[in-house]
Design a protein around this nucleic acid. Structure first.
Length: 191
DNA sequence: TATGAGATCAACT
DNA sequence: GTTGATCTCATAC
């Protein structure tokens, strides 16, 4: 099961193609990480996206080249990790919402102060804390250390649903997840 | 199980 | 001054 490294070209496409293909991919930061099980797409036509109103100091990275990390502070305390994708008129990115811990479990538990594996990375803020992601990672390329990204070996079953935790355009079905995963931040509606 | 408040920073009105 | 792509802890059934 040799997985290919994801390079910049992977992200130089529409978020709506990139987002579902990220499900099942492996993300490591400094050797700590796991399998991506939940993401959300943010597009410039989307009032909930930071890029909707154009570039600002905070979201400048989103308007840069694809394949970079966009890290921002949420509610003053949490960090959230995004992958910048191709611009289609304006900036777009994929929010990494949850992953299944595979590598560096000990480090993650220490950083999170938790024993429960399922809650180590089941949410954007938790994930960043577990992987040690901070504003220092903002703008870093995803194909160079400390980041490591590997494509999934096989195409998993993708669940699709409504996004979480937002008040604008919350009805857009741009949340993607690994069907049946125990590590989702919230379960998908069964269909 | 379910609802509610607090934490705390930067962009926006 | 208010709001937000959140999480945790406390209190109430």
């Amino acid at each position: 099961m040799a997985s290919a490294r994801l390079h910049r070209a992977f992200f130089a496409r529409s978020v709506h193609r990139v987002a579902p293909e990220l499900i099942g991919a492996i993300l490591l930061v400094d050797g700590v990480g796991g399998r991506i099980v939940e993401v959300e797409a943010y597009h410039h036509t989307d009032p909930a996206a930071h890029s909707f109103r154009g570039p600002t100091e905070r979201n400048a990275v989103m308007f840069g080249p694809p394949g970079h990390a966009y890290v921002y502070r949420s509610y003053g305390i949490h960090w959230c990790l995004n992958f910048v994708c191709e611009r289609e008129g304006s900036a777009s990115a994929v929010l990494i919402r949850a992953l299944e811990p595979l590598e560096g479990l000990t480090k993650m538990r220490r950083r999170r102060g938790l024993a429960d594996e399922r809650q180590l990375c089941s949410g954007p803020g938790r994930l960043c804390q577990a992987l040690g992601i901070t504003g220092a990672h903002n703008g870093l390329p995803l194909d160079r250390p400390p980041f490591e990204l590997f494509a999934r070996a096989e195409k998993p079953e993708i669940a699709k649903g409504v996004r979480i935790g937002i008040t604008k355009a919350a009805e857009l079905p741009w949340r993607y997840g690994l069907k049946g995963s125990k590590f989702l931040s919230k379960p998908f509606k069964a269909d």
